[in-house]
Design a protein around this nucleic acid. Sequence first.
DNA 1: AAGCATACCAACCGCAAGCCG
DNA 2: CCGGCTTGCGGTTGGTATGCT
Length: 283
Amino acid sequence: MGCKAAEKPKQKHKKGLWSPDEDDKLKNYIIKNGHGCWSSVPINAGLQRNGKSCRLRWINYLRPGLKRGAFSLEEEDTILTLHAMFGNKWSQIAQHLSGRTDNEIKNHWHSYLKKRVSKVAENYEGHTKSVNTESSPSSMKLTPRNSSLDSFEHIEGSLVDSDQSASQMDFSREPQKSNLPKVLFAEWLSLDQFNGQDFQNSGNFEPSKNNFGYNNSEFQDIFMHSLPMNDGSYGNGVNQEVNNGTVGDIFQPQLKFEDPMSANGFEEFMSGEFNINDDVMYI
DNA sequence: AAGCATACCAACCGCAAGCCG
DNA sequence: CCGGCTTGCGGTTGGTATGCT
């Protein structure tokens, strides 16, 4: 961090929405020169913005490899699970969702997923109240980061076989099954508790470097840019979904994570192992 | 059709931490 | 060691779109 202080001609920085022209200027500049020191970017690119604004615009909108559009069920699934583990560590969550920014994930959480979780939580609260009327209301409340394992086990007992461990509950699920109860169970596990599970030996839940020495996000960016396009150029990094052949003859492989929280998927995810199957790369 | 409420999303703000002279 | 500067992160705000009455 830290770079030579940029010379600052005291000028008023523009605020608000970015115009297509500004986008072009910023994009062209960074593609040509890299961003280097952000504070000097707007000066060199001829923009009336501050460096911070440029950085944000690049990261959240202009950066190659960004996925636009609605979140898939799998992505939502992953966000819910990771949020239960990390809390509001949006940047960490974003590292596990290629093509999504922390801002995007955060917005999606606040506008949709949070409500979904609390709604389900209310349902379970009602359910458990009816099952066990002795519990005090406060002990039944969902307080993800602070709840004790005791309350977890208490509620868990009313919903699942009592001798099934929390780790089994969280990470042995099969893909595509409804995950909501498991997300709720994960909410009761603190990160420390999570780290103590057998599947997590390192105690450090960071994506591993893959065989090319890049983390998954870096790798995808580079990978997407190296793809030959049908016009003879190389990929623009935009992760176009290959749905029913709608992309046509443009070769745009997808970088997919197998369900990272499934028993096998998690190990593969952590080990960085992957294989290429036609136009889909599985990690 | 108008007014209001809600949802969504881009962008801003403040803070913490790292780097450098 | 200290102060200034930059970067990155998370919380919040404000504008626009959409839905409802």
